Computed example of a mutant assay.
Amino acid sequence: MSSALPHPTACENCATPLQGDFCHHCGQSAHSPVRSFGHAVEEVFESFWHLDGRIFRTLQQLLLPGRLAAAYLAGHRTRYIPPIRLFVILSVLTFFVARLAVHVDAGTFINQTRTPPEVPGAFRDATTSDEVEHVRRALLAPLQQSRNTMPESLRSPIDVAIAKVEKQAARRQRELKEHPPAASAPAATKAAAKPVQVTPGDGSDPVDISFLPGFANRWLTGQAETIRLNLPRISERPQLLVNAFFGAVPSALFVLVPLFAVLLKVFYLGSGRLYLEHLVVALYSHAFLCVALLGILLLSMLGGQMTAVPGAGIIIGVLITLLVLWMPCYLLIMQRRVYGQSWLVTTLKFTALGWLYFTVVTAATVVLAIASLARI
C-alpha cells in the first residue's frame, strides 16, 4: 500500500535538495513512513527487514565462532547490526518462545491446592509434645512438597526453611520437658491449645540471615510471606510461575552481560582492550547462546508434534544434544579467535572464567526463581 504523492525533491527535515534516498546533509531517509505502509513496516522492523539484509549477514557471521566479534572490533561495523541491538532482539525473541514452549500442568509443581487445616498456633503456643508435632508437620508439609517438585539447584532456600522449622520444633520440645506447663491451670492450657491458622512469615517466623543487614532480612521476610500466599495460585496455575520467570530473564541478562564483560576485562588485563570491547564480546557471546537456546526450544516443540513419526524423537534428541555440546565449544573457539592467545592459555582462562560465571548465573537463577514466586 503506497501513497500516490510524488517522491519529495527536498529533505523534509532540513529542506536540502535530495540526490538519492537519503539526505546528504542530515542523513534522514527520503521515504516517509506516514506516506507508505511498506516503509512504515520497514521503520518498525528496520533491523530485520531493511533492504541491505544486515540481519541475515549478521546471523550468518554470528554462527561462526568469533568471526562477527573480531570483524566488529576490527572496525567493520556498517555491514552488521550493532551488538546491543542484536542481543536485545534475540533475548526477547528467545524467552518469548520459551514461554510458549515450556508448559507445566496443574498438579505437577505443587500439590498444595487448599489452605492447610487449622492447627495449634506457632510453636510458642504449643503446650504439649503432640501439639508441637502437629505444628511441625503442618509447617513442613507444603515446604517438602515444594522441595520435591523443584529442580536441585532451586532447593537451597527451601532446605533452609525446613531446617529452621525442625530447629524450632526441637527447641520447643526441650522447653516443654524442662519446664512443663502447670497442671493447675487447665483453663490457660485450654486457651493456649485453641486451634489457629499457622502463618509462617507473619512476623512470628521472620527471616534472619546473620550476614545480611536488617533491611535485607525484612525484605526477605516480606517476600517469603508473599510467596506463601502465592503457593495456592501456583498450584492451580503453575504456568504463571513459568511465564514470570522467563519474562524476567531478559532483564536479568542486562546485569549479567556487563558482569561477564568485567570478568573478561580481569582475565585479559594485558590484552590492551577497553572495557567496551570486552562488552562487545560478551554481547555477541550471549547473542549466540540465545540463538542456540532458541534452536533447542524449536526442536523440542517440533519433537512434540512428531511423536507419531518413527525415529523422529531420537533424531531430535541427538540434534539437541549436539547443540548443547556445541555451546561451550563455540565460546572457547570464540575466545581464542578474539584474543589470539595460545590454546593452552585460552583453555585455562576459559575454564576459570566459565566456573566463576556459572556460579554467578546459578545464584542469579535461584534469586530470579524466588523473585518470580513473589511476583506472579
Rank of each mutant, 00 (worst) to 15 (best):
A101D: 10
L100G: 15
V207M: 08
G27A: 04
V345L: 14
A69F: 01
F56A: 15
P17T: 05
R237C: 00
V92F: 09
P82A: 15
A192I: 00
Y275M: 07
A126V: 07
A182L: 12
E118A: 06
V360S: 05
G121A: 14
Y284N: 06
S47A: 10
L18Q: 06
L331V: 06
I314D: 15
A216C: 05
Q112A: 12
I316Q: 07
S91W: 02
E152S: 09
P33I: 07
L274K: 15
L298K: 05
T365W: 03
A292G: 09
L297A: 14
M1G: 14
D205K: 00
G53Q: 04
A141C: 02
Y275H: 11
L293D: 02
R228D: 11
V338L: 05
R137N: 09
R218I: 00
R124G: 09
F215A: 10
N148W: 01
T58R: 04
T346K: 07
G304N: 13
M306W: 10
A282L: 04
G340F: 01
G214R: 13
W49L: 15
L332S: 03
S300W: 11
D125R: 15
T58W: 02
A282V: 07
W355N: 07
T189D: 04
L274I: 01
Q168F: 05
V338K: 03
L294G: 15
I89W: 08
K194C: 02
G121S: 13
S146G: 12
E43I: 01
I316F: 07
M327Y: 01
F267E: 10
Y357T: 01
Q197M: 07
H31Y: 09
L356Q: 06
P120E: 08
A374E: 05
L93G: 10
A185E: 14
E175C: 00
P180F: 09
P195A: 11
L299M: 13
R155I: 00
R228F: 08
H24P: 00
G354F: 02
R35V: 01
V361Q: 06
L302Q: 05
T347K: 05
V104F: 08
A161W: 03
I370K: 01
L276Y: 08
S153A: 15
